[in-house]
Amino acid sequence: MSSSSRAPVVAPNRVLRACLYATLLVFAVYYLLPLYVMVMNSLKTLDEIRQGNMLAPPREWTVKPWGDAWSRAQIGVEATGLRPYFINSVLMVVPAVTISTVLGALNGYVLTKWTFRGANVVFALILLSCFIPFQIVLIPSARVLGFLGISGTTAGLVLIHIAYGIGFTTLFFRNYYASFPTELIRAAQIDGAGFFRIFWSILLPSSGPILAVSAIWQFTNIWNDFLFGASFGDFDSIPMTVALNNLVSSSSGVKEYNVHFAGAILAALPTLLVYVLSGRYFVRGLTAGAVKG
């Protein structure tokens, strides 16, 4: 998605172009509105929210909801705020992203440069795993995690996220390495370089972009996961998304909307930050499976 180089297809009629810009701006407002509303209302007092007008900026700015969401809000039985769950998510995401990306890189390398009979079938089966509805694996996953003695732990969630992330990372690296000149690999082989040497010295140095794509994709998916966290998380492994849902949907007491919004933004912040800092790779990951060539 580089910038447009083509002459405009629709004739550059002034009225038409004004309509074009107007439509694009209306959609921009539509996409931004929920975020704007969340941010503004997370900075209001609860009284002010109850008085209505969600679109107005706060009359009386306060950051107290943010502090409450982070360290004081009631989640489940204890008033710990979201902080421990944020830490759970970080402890889960870092190893899961690292290991699934490393495995994906090696798989992509094997499946493009060291193919063997049946390699395509293996790839098809790995790829198909990206699309399964996770409901089909929930019951056996719970039993296997119990069998391994890691049910309810962060290690268990890491294992689950690796298992269901390999498909994506393998797809990314396979497509990327497929366009890497195989002659270079053969030449290095003739010079006596082995499997890992070639990977380290030839492929890996030029894998920066796809490493970023894969890591960002995995980070976003795993951070945002809810189903596995809700099914297999226990007190000291529940991730941020599940804690946020518990905070928002807890029926006891007064609904502190401003705290809910601050919590929602806290849960969204890491992935939003990654998106803002490296949106290009984020988009490449999204479109990798859908657009060929």
């Binding site: 996409y31 929920p34 509303v37 945002n224 946020l244 928002v248 949106g279």
Partner: peptide, 22 residues
């Protein structure tokens, strides 16, 4: 373009929270 795309970076739980209230 980034404005149209940023919701994809959000968790559905965050989206749900925002829209539920909206």
């Amino acid at each position: 373009r980034p404005i149209y795309l940023y919701p994809l970076a959000l968790s559905f739980i965050v989206t749900g929270t925002a829209w539920k209230w909206f």
